[in-house]
Design a binder for these strands. Sequence first.
RNA 1: GGGCCCGUAGUGUAGCCUGGUUUAACACGUCGCCCUGUCACGGCGAAGAUCGCCAGUUCAAAUCUGGUCGGGCCCGCCA
Length: 434
Amino acid sequence: MERTLTAQLPQRVGERVRLLGWVHHIRQLGSISFLLLRDRTGLCQAVTAEPERFKLNQIQRESIVELLGRVKPEPQARQGVELELEELKILITPVAPLPFEVNRSRKKLNLKLDMLLDHRAFSLRNPEFGAVFRVQAEIVNTFREFLRQAGFLEVHTSKIIAAGTEGGTALFPIQYFEQKAYLAQSPQFYKQMLVGAGYERVFEVGFVYRAEDHATSRHINEYLSLDYEMGFIQSFRDVTRLENQLLKVMVEKLKNNCAAELEILGARLPEVGEIPELHFRDARAILKKDYGRNTEGMIDLDPEAERQLCDYAGKVYNSEFIFITHYPRKTRPFYTMWDPDDPEYTFGFDLLFRGLEVTTGSQRIHDYNMLVENIRRFGLQPENYDFYLEIFKYAVPPHGGLAIGAERLTQQFLGLANVREASLFPRDRFRLTP
RNA sequence: GGGCCCGUAGUGUAGCCUGGUUUAACACGUCGCCCUGUCACGGCGAAGAUCGCCAGUUCAAAUCUGGUCGGGCCCGCCA
């Protein structure tokens, strides 16, 4: 008999079906007993008045079983249907005690993050932890679909590189035969080069690596970067407007395709209207005036400032997102275009969402001479960037782009306390397994 | 790199300040018995911990001190 999935049961009322899955829970109430079966589509309840016949009290949780039975409507059951158990076959049983209960709510389990991650594959059986990555898949899928429709080409650039992108953050060195190489901290150079290659609009979904020695709830050393880069822009606002649109579509998609996951996670989606933007200079003034911050010499936003500006966006614009634009030149990498009318500031921006930076982007410098000059001004040697600079000699259009941290975006959509919960197998300062 | 904090049954916690009535407690899980409609089922009972590790102080250490190993959070930096 063909396998039926638990989610299909409401359409199979009256039929005899065969189910496969894990034993999520067994509840024996004397002579009536329930077995909750879990498969990739969800849970269903099998019922029997003969627990002895199926030796229910001998079945270990998380065993894999095959159930045969008839689907009957039952208003008291969760999905309105349940399986009248006729046959039960135990296919595979656990050979060790379970590390923790997987059939409870996250709150009830109250697991330490370390326990959760040490037993990652097992913890994902919990419908709540598992739901995080169904949502993340939808986020990534929407990113792809949306950009394809907007005329972007999906590209895959090398994660093994010869020189660092921006100088700033630490790189992981690797041995590449007889040469020294590094893991890419960003596809930045390559996506710009591909704009110049004539594709004009490219995007990439890929891991990037940062050897930063930090330990916070928002950092991991390998993260999924959602990048796009677009040519022939008139201003950096072409880039931010597109992200605004993307987020609008994303929230709609999540609403439609992940309703069950969002519900079990207790997540509330944001309303995405027109995302307000704030010049860095104005942001600083607000921090000083409304939040009593000492903003003297402030050239970047610390996490507290990011939370405060989101608080401000909520109060003044009724928005959970806010673009902070025109970051000072000192804090932005050499390829960032500055504002010719206000050259202390750049056309670089961040998107803050519920108190956390989830995107960085900018308009880039597209003029060859300007770029070389700026590399020198940063104390770097243009020769080291020849592979990147070459295409700029042959005319690259005005362009800009951004990068979204997929785990951070997932974290903020779902209200997760730690970004590691939004990474399947996170790599942090001390964790290299599983 | 700087600061703060935590390691107690399979899991999550209490006890630690103020050392001794503690046979180390509670909840979930596990095992056994009871219960026709549960869905965090319920009831009764049982097993399960040399209190991360090492050393010190003391008549006495889960409790105080030092070291060590493991972990968490915040900051710098970043997505």
